[in-house]
Design a protein around this nucleic acid. Structure first.
Lengths: 220, 220
DNA sequence: ATAACTATGTAACGCTGTTCTATAAAAGTC
DNA sequence: GACTTTTATAGAACAGCGTTACATAGTTAT
């Protein structure tokens, strides 16, 4: 008698490790408790930072007992995983929203948006890429959303390459180079380790360096 | 509170001229307890990782009570700061040990050594640059040793620029670009996020891209 | 020898993530 | 509608963490 009604509407019911079929048929007093919980978790993360993101704090923020975090999200791991997915989705959206008159402009716009996302969401970036909350990418859902963000960057590179501004046999490798570089730049900036006076200018200079270094030989 | 004599690097230096104000007048039963404590701390870090680096574990490793970590190193913060200084000193040594027939070779050798340091000391790199153990760079000692490592990288850039392979008005900014890029590359590699099959090859390609992008216009 | 001082070890506090258990409420069955 | 079964909940409790308090032991100064 396992009815898979699931009444979702909340596709964000990620919580991979725990509660695989947990929401099978329970009473579901308020079907979107998980989303409220996630909203509370995000509020705590943004307000208190990764160090303040505790099970008890999130439960209190949501007005429930700490056990609810385990029943609904699979403990702190599930909580963090759900936040990671949110973060990577937003990062992907930032990279996908590139605009500009030509492929070159879109290249630089993507780089600019990446940095702006990180600076606007430092705590998200910290849990996504720093070990602010220790985690791996073993959760398939998290890994998938992270790779989706990377694919958005690959698409930007493909557009730029199609316009002739980038020449390389492996565009995925080019995208990886760019990702490494811009990630390092924002990571160091978030930790206050940029040694130049104008981090924004140095960031633009890095994008210029990458663009020049990736340009095809004739233009080089 | 902070009295960590960073007499690191030369393990044979007996505490003759050292033990400055630390042994103000106390009994100083064994003057190098602090170094033994640091050695124990490093052993725990390497063996257990940042998550296993607890005050109790280090104290047990050193054969003392947890209180000793507070009396000798100023609690966990002092412990981590001392390890950070060790890590940055080694990173600086790695960058300083660049070799090669010419400036170009030294440029790539420095990049190679940076990555090798990170891959050989992942836990050190994690506490230095990731937020594996939350910390800032407010401690002047830590900040100074970190900047010393960066200055080693600046020197490599200066040598490369003197040879005519790099042309830029601000070599510090160039060094910052390179640091950002290679830090991002090794940070992502340590987290298993390199999307290409051969991370080493992609890393070399990134160095090539940087070198090409920083080359003076005529050679470009 | 006596007194002052300091470093140490034991125990405890508050915090964390997590687990256990009893309770209460919903769903299924007659 | 009444009864049984299932399940989520709340509260307390456990082990671990960093840290602190306090009494003790040992060294130094007078």
């Amino acid at each position: 008698m396992f009815r898979m009604d699931e009444t979702d509407g909340v596709p964000g019911s990620v919580c991979g490790p725990a509660a695989p079929a947990a929401a099978r048929r329970g009473r579901t007093p308020s079907a979107d408790v998980e989303r409220e919980l996630l909203t509370a978790a995000e509020a705590v993360l943004v307000r208190e930072g990764p160090g303040g993101l505790t099970v008890r704090a999130v439960a209190t923020e949501a007005g429930i007992a700490p056990m609810g975090v385990y029943n609904r999200l699979g403990g702190k791991d599930g909580l963090v995983d759900a936040l990671l997915i949110r973060g990577f989705d937003r990062l992907r959206a930032a990279c996908d929203a590139t605009a500009g008159p030509d492929a070159t402009a879109r290249f630089f716009d993507a780089g600019r948006r990446y940095r702006e996302f990180a600076l606007a969401n430092p705590h998200f970036y910290a849990i996504m890429f720093e070990d602010a909350i220790p985690h791996g990418f073993d959760n398939p859902d998290v890994a998938e959303h992270a790779q989706a963000a990377f694919r958005a960057l690959v698409r930007v590179v493909e557009v730029t390459a199609a316009a002739g501004a980038i020449a390389a046999p492996d565009l995925v490798e080019v995208a990886q180079q760019i990702w490494s570089a811009i990630h390092g730049a924002v990571a160091l900036e978030l930790k206050g380790l940029i040694q130049t006076e104008d981090p924004a200018a140095t960031y633009r200079a890095l994008l210029d360096t990458l663009f020049q270094g990736l340009a095809p030989p004739p233009a080089r």
